[in-house]
Design a protein around this nucleic acid. Structure first.
Lengths: 129, 129
DNA sequence: TAACCGTATTACTAATCATAGTACAGTTAA
DNA sequence: TTAACTGTACTATGATTAGTAATACGGTTA
């Protein structure tokens, strides 16, 4: 399911968080779809279940999944109601990145292109919006 | 000169890097302007000179300043020739942030607003471009 | 009950951070 | 030349944090 780099300086749990976020954002995983159990995934990836759980917990606090004891972890369909704290973090982070991008010479045009591309790629907003 | 939070979980040297980047990006510090010497700044902030130097080294590898042995460290005017590696990093990072921002419900309009604001704030590109 | 779920706790290891001390080399002005 | 600045390199140390692992606990479901 995943190709994670155990030798990377990027922590395993972080790689997992990014992977899942990507899958969720790009609609590869649908709302309420079940994620593999911590143990199953741990076994498949030959890492410790706690590492998986750490990733899942992070995904949960960021609003991408929800977990139910005894049942499993699932893609959060209400993800768009992310806490305002998270929203602000992402917004200010975006500002910082943009300032950097501008500074190193990336043009507004380029930024616009990136935006449109990204927007298309993630489905351009749900059809039922 | 700086108000850094010694109790923050954010490393001191990282706070310094961000501070200087901000000053440089927002044109508060001009091209070839001299940064405080590592020892002077260390004394002012009551931190170890090595901590300052770590920040300066990071700023240098990121292309924001240049250092000359015996003379000092200065704002890099050629900052826009950042290594393509750095550019790519910032670009892909920006894409990731954008995808996240879209996902959590920030609209394209909002993004555009943020872009314009950021663009204005950093001086809207040099006049001699 | 058995087999599966997430979760909490504890512990060990490795990496990171900041500091300290020392030394080396280039610059500049007295 | 010397003295007083600059940046840089290296090693070592202590403290903290991050990452992972092992184990146990509690809920769910068939």
């Amino acid at each position: 399911m995943f190709d994670l780099d155990l030798r990377s300086r990027k922590p395993i749990y972080e790689q997992l968080v990014d992977k899942f976020k990507e899958l969720i954002i790009n609609d590869v995983m649908q709302t309420d779809e079940k994620l593999p159990s911590v143990r199953i995934l741990a076994q498949q990836l030959t890492v410790n279940p706690n590492t998986i759980q750490k990733a899942y917990r992070e995904l949960e606090t960021q609003g991408y999944i929800y977990s139910v004891k005894g049942k499993g972890s699932f893609v959060d369909g209400t993800a768009k109601k992310v806490s305002s704290h998270e929203v602000n973090k992402i917004r200010s982070d975006l500002e910082k990145r943009l300032a950097e991008a501008f500074f190193i010479g990336i043009t507004k045009d380029e930024i616009y292109k990136i935006i449109e591309l990204t927007y298309e790629q993630i489905g351009g907003g749900d059809k039922d919006d």
